[in-house]
Design a protein around this nucleic acid. Structure first.
Lengths: 324, 324
DNA sequence: GGAAAAGCAGAATACGTTTTCCGTCGCTGC
DNA sequence: GCAGCGACGGAAAACGTATTCTGCTTTTCC
């Protein structure tokens, strides 16, 4: 069972060349005849040779490993990003190592030291909030995902929240809604503020509160009292939107016939379980993770990007605006 | 900024010893005078020396890296386990590399090859379902988490679902409930079946369906038609329980005054958002991940465990049974 | 006081790969 | 026929650490 690990010297021996030559053949470097390359490749295939990453790392500096530094690995925002990152990296035969800092600067420092000592090829930094964050100080390629670096010279990829919010508004106006209100999360959350600002021509001021269903229900009451004639409510999150829908149903206000509702985040467990299912704005976080990983690969390859890349969000229409 | 990486030879030079001696001093191996050890340690601290994992890996075989093989990294079950695993491993200065197989056997094979080539010290295998899974074939320490290996000689850590279900029943009986029904997920899911079997002295047969709120609502109607006098409903998941609560409220049946409801999984976003908040059974998945990681560390250290370790679940009482 | 034993540290080697530097061979052009 | 060049592949060094082996010094015991 425990086959004794075939090394490059074994391959070289079988192909009748030296170890160095075998290395060149397998990595398409140096100058070798096509014939020799082919012979070595066949030998490697026959033996099922897989280069030992340890030796390779020591010798070439490349470790084919990337660190994923996240402030919380449990959040529903970090997870899809992780998936996207890991997807791209694994396709390139790179390994992704997980560093969950738990929002603790000490843990972050400790991880960074450790990752530098490991000689990772690069780092993807992500977080659960969209507020820009201070850059990390490492002599390595770094890409920031979701939460941009405050240093504009760094490479960051984030979601275009304003465009996503605008898309929701446009969608509602196309459907003929004119008196649109907005209920969202805390006023000190950048995502809440950015979305609210992009929601033009609102009825009344945006209602800031929490990212919870309860606040959605509560805010619905407030809103209907001050603006009884709204015909659409855009929400800063699917949780809030679900609360809004629940409350409207309790009040026998038909959704969307009477009042259309939109969510935000397109979190399946909320958006689909809501009654009715929510029209929402998908952040495309997995794609964001992929792009971040691609940028990192390019930076590792020697062509780093700079500045912030904003990815478009995508409106996903469902019954809460389209009727049923 | 880019300091030129201090190596062990630098430390050795500063301490006035050879590289090999420095290594021994820092790793507490070999025989050295206490004085020498101290001197080397001071030199290392002064220089901020962090051993290069690459060199260490090549030399000692140990790579201080563990692979976390998961069939899906997005599930709400895998995530807490990952956290627990990563928590323990990072405390031991080990790195956790993420391998998301997406339920694809080919990807799994490819990852395993890659991890063996990397020389990881061990592997934690986890999944999103509790059904036992075929073992992986690698010459390395392995621990299975959540989904046990079908080979009893392997080390597995799982949740004691039967005990969790029994705890819910006991809780309800203590509260004086006697006519208890059960609504749960698909009959071909082990977790549904195990929980249902442990629910003794039920009113009627368990209702198998989907893990969804909609099924919870639907099943509530079915149940009330056949057994109008139930005074408690245990559910196989929090989603189902939330659906049950919603339907009961629509029917003006008070929870828990008239009918008590319990969930399962203690998934905060469901259990806390439900009206009323759900009494639920916490799977303690993070703890499960921790235990798995600890077992793996012991196996790596040379004292492997065998067989299945069942961890207790924990009942978390809330208003859906305790009244309000 | 001498021999054996213990304590200590250095030199050398190994880990598996990549990469640089050379040497050889065959060819071209004069 | 010879200098020079290009194409190819081998030998060796390098990466940074751990570890084994060896030898020196000091202690201990008779």
């Amino acid at each position: 069972m425990k086959r004794p690990a075939v090394r490059i010297t074994d391959v070289a021996a079988l192909a009748g060349v030296s170890a160095g030559t075998a290395s060149k053949a397998l990595n398409n470097t140096g100058q070798l005849s096509q014939d020799t390359r082919e012979r070595v490749r066949r030998a490697a295939a026959q033996l099922g040779f897989t280069p030992d990453v340890r030796g390779r790392a020591l010798s070439s500096g490349r470790t084919f490993t990337v660190a994923l530094l996240t402030t919380d690995s449990s959040g529903r925002f970090s997870i899809p990003i992780m998936r996207g990152v890991e997807d791209v990296l694994s396709a390139g035969e790179l390994a992704t190592v997980l560093c969950d800092t738990r929002d603790d600067p000490l843990r972050e420092q400790s991880y960074l030291r450790s990752m530098v000592a490991r000689g990772v090829d690069g780092i993807v930094v992500t977080g659960r909030r969209t507020e820009p964050r201070p850059p990390i100080d490492v002599p390595l390629p770094v890409v920031y995902a979701l939460a941009a670096s405050t240093d504009p010279a760094d490479a960051s990829v984030i979601v275009d929240d304003a465009a996503g919010a605008a898309a929701a508004i446009t969608h509602l106006r196309t459907l003929g809604r004119t008196r649109i209100a907005h209920i969202t999360g805390p006023a000190d959350h950048r995502s809440a503020v950015e979305r609210a600002q992009a929601m033009t021509t609102l009825v009344g001021e945006p209602l800031f509160g929490e990212w919870s269903e309860q606040w959605g229900r509560q805010a619905t009451d407030l809103l209907l009292r001050s603006h009884p004639d709204v015909d659409a409510i855009t929400c800063g999150s699917d949780q809030i939107a679900r609360g809004v829908c629940d409350r409207l149903r309790e009040l026998s206000r038909a959704v969307p016939a009477e009042i259309a509702v939109t969510g935000y985040d397109n979190w399946p467990v909320m958006a689909l379980a809501s009654r009715p299912p929510l029209t929402s704005v998908d952040l495309r976080l997995e794609e964001l993770g992929r792009r971040a990983a691609q940028l990192l690969l390019e930076a590792i390859a020697g062509t780093p990007h700079h500045g912030v890349l904003e990815l478009p969000a995508q409106l996903v229409p469902r019954e809460s605006t389209l009727g049923g």
